[in-house]
Write a protein that binds this DNA or RNA. Structure first.
Length: 587
RNA sequence: GGUCCUGUGGUGAAGUCUGGAGUUCACGCCGGCCUGUCAAGCCGGAGGUCGCGGGUUCAAAUCCCGUCGGGACCGCCA
């Protein structure tokens, strides 16, 4: 890496014992100054690469975060003064001459690890100072090397980078869009892309064969630790492929990214069906770093007298094993009530808890409703032993799974970045998830262009909710990284799916015409994928929050404390766009 | 739209439950001393509309109501 410039010969972090004797010039920020009177001071000079201790013996003034240029001789530190905590700690710069390039006001917070505790609003207000810190430098550089590794992996597989428009027509359904008013056509609007989905499929029709883009996507939905208005995806699409081709190609990119970040290539990414993920982990984004799997109990209570269980389609349980989760297994009544509330919030009618006492005696509010046979069958099914806490939910299959999945995570899920990394493909998603209560039509699980599983085509109209899709998600440590599918390339099949969704031919033409028309001109079978780079990098960087791997993120309310965006604009700008604003509704 | 946590010199915290003078601690800042430190040390100093508004009270950082900002989550994110 060529780092020397007109103003410097080296960078701070690259100097070590092998440079002893060299006369060098460095430029950077004063990280810290330790004065010992007029005749001796130490300045820790910082740049992006690290810190170098400079010995100043002429009393030159330089304070925190001043920008200075220092010329000096690389010298081995005297015996006993080596700093083993510093990569450059064996050497220092002596016989220094210092030039102040720019003085600076004291920073509002320390430019080091201590700022991790500073109110995030203040970090964001002074983001340019926050990014000076080693943590942010490391995160952003890690992100850059992940991007670079992904590009290489995609290009070696024949993917071609194509840029797609940011200004596009608004498309119905899906996430809320950001709109951009048209000046030439007042009253008309562009939308910013939620993803390049439509464009990349058109590129397949256009014969590009393999497309990729590290693409910015914009969605006007509420923000979270893992969600920003704008985020970045590796977006890819390929022609003449089936599901395995896509999973293989994307795996190559993920492996390369992981290797770039950690130096280790993960083992081949395992697969689990959506149905198994729900059954075992109660989630379509299973965190498989820990056990506490759901146990099927419906048969145990097949002929029970306990009403809440007798009428339920599905009964499952968790065994909170006292040896593995001593704290959770021993939780008191108060905590159990909180857990019950949580179960109810997640959609359950209630939560049955049982504590396993000596000799298999069950301590539970509902124990008296269960027969001795049921109790012993329950203990056998769960493999329960003394001290365990058992949690049971009885409801429809889907509710039972998701409620227990939520409790499983609440009880035992480690922080997202804690190893080991467990990548998993969740495959065979259902084509539809539930029924829209207002239209009484099935709702697409992914998007309406997903190809139904060929084996399930016959029941598309008769049993739509049990039709699988050629759709798949990539999950890492319980975070959904991304999703993809084989697309519908046959106009007739697309029409069938639209009809199921309650979209007639005329509506389809009106809403998606620009997208459907091209498919009449010879669309190749194709499929693709997109995964969130912010999320992947956050986990690989050991961060809980994607804001830590974004240079200039927004707060949870969508503001930027540094620029104060969003803000008002001049009336003249609104006039030019043919816009008028309404007063803020009174509370 | 909702639930929970949070806001005190430049920064981080304690004080708030149980009202009694802007009190305390650490870092930073300014000044002095200091020739081997490395998140230097010692001494001194400055710095606050306790987010904002209203109410209760003899008295409010503290209690009540409202509001704004930040964070986690639910809804939402095809």
């Amino acid at each position: 890496m060529a780092t020397s410039t007109t103003l410097r010969t080296h960078v701070c972090g690259e100097l070590n014992a092998s440079n002893v004797g060299a006369r060098v010039t460095l430029a950077g920020w004063v990280s810290r100054r330790r004065e010992h009177g007029d005749k001796l001071a130490f300045i820790d000079l910082r740049d992006f690469s690290g810190v170098m201790q400079c010995v100043i013996d002429d009393g030159a003034e330089a304070r925190s975060e001043w920008v200075v240029q220092i010329t000096g001789t690389v010298t081995a530190r005297p015996t006993g003064t080596v700093n083993t905590n510093l990569p450059t700690g064996e050497v220092e710069l002596t016989n220094c001459s210092l030039t102040v390039l720019n003085a600076a006001e004291p920073p509002p917070f320390p430019i080091d690890q201590r700022a991790d505790d500073v109110d995030e609003n203040i970090r964001l207000k002074f983001r340019y100072l926050d990014v000076r810190r080693e943590r942010m430098q490391r995160n952003l550089r890690l992100r850059a090397s992940v991007n670079s590794a992904i590009r290489t992996a995609m290009e070696t597989q024949g993917f071609v980078e194509v840029e797609t428009p940011l200004l596009m027509p608004s498309t119905p359904e899906g996430a809320r869009e950001f709109l951009v008013p048209s000046r030439k056509e007042p009253g008309s609007f562009y939308a910013l892309p939620q993803s390049p989905q439509l464009w990349k499929q058109l590129l397949m029709v256009a014969g590009m064969d393999r497309y990729y883009q590290i693409a910015r996507c914009l969605r006007d939905e509420d923000l979270r630790a893992d969600r920003q208005y704008e985020f970045t995806q590796l977006d890819a699409e390929m022609s003449f492929v089936d599901k395995d081709d896509v999973l293989h190609a994307i795996s190559q990119a993920v492996m390369a990214a992981a290797h770039a970040a950690t130096g280790v290539t993960p083992p081949p990414i395992e697969r689990i069906t959506w149905h198994d993920a729900m059954n075992r982990f109660g989630s379509d984004k299973p965190d498989m770093r820990f056990g506490l799997e759901l146990v099927e109990l419906t048969a145990v209570f097949a002929s029970t007298a306990f009403k809440a269980f007798a009428t339920a389609a599905s009964i499952k349980g968790l065994r909170v094993d006292a040896a593995t989760y001593p704290e959770a297994a021993a939780m008191g009544r108060n905590k159990l009530d909180q857990l019950t509330d949580r179960a109810k919030q997640s959609g359950a009618k209630g939560l049955v808890w049982m504590k396993v006492g000596a000799a298999g005696v069950l301590d539970s509010p509902v124990a008296k409703f269960l027969s001795d046979d049921e109790k012993s069958a329950l203990i056998t099914a769960l493999g329960a032993t003394t001290g365990d806490l058992l949690l049971l939910v009885a409801d429809g299959w889907s509710t039972t799974c998701t409620v227990l999945g939520t409790l499983r995570n609440d009880i035992a899920r480690p922080p997202v970045h804690e190893g080991p990394y467990r990548y998993v493909w969740v495959v065979d998603f259902p084509l539809f998830v539930g029924v829209n209560p207002t239209t009484n039509k099935p709702q697409p699980g992914h998007h309406p262009f997903c190809h139904p599983h060929p084996d399930d085509l016959a029941k598309l109209e008769t049993d739509p909710l049990n039709v699988r899709a050629l759709a798949y998600d990539l999950v890492l440590n319980g975070w959904e990284l991304g999703s993809g599918s084989i697309r519908i390339h046959e106009p007739e099949l697309q029409r069938r799916v639209f009809h199921l969704l309650g979209i007639d031919d005329e509506t389809a033409d009106r809403k998606f015409g620009f997208f459907l028309q091209p498919f009449k001109y010879g669309a190749p079978p194709h499929g693709g994928f997109a995964f969130g780079i912010d999320r992947l990098v956050a986990i690989l960087a050991g961060e809980e929050n994607i804001r830590e791997v974004i240079a200039f993120p927004k707060t949870q309310s969508g503001m930027d404390p540094m620029t104060n965006a969003p803000g008002p604009v001049e009336p003249a700008q609104l006039l030019e766009l043919g816009l008028r604003t309404l007063p803020k509704p009174a509370n």
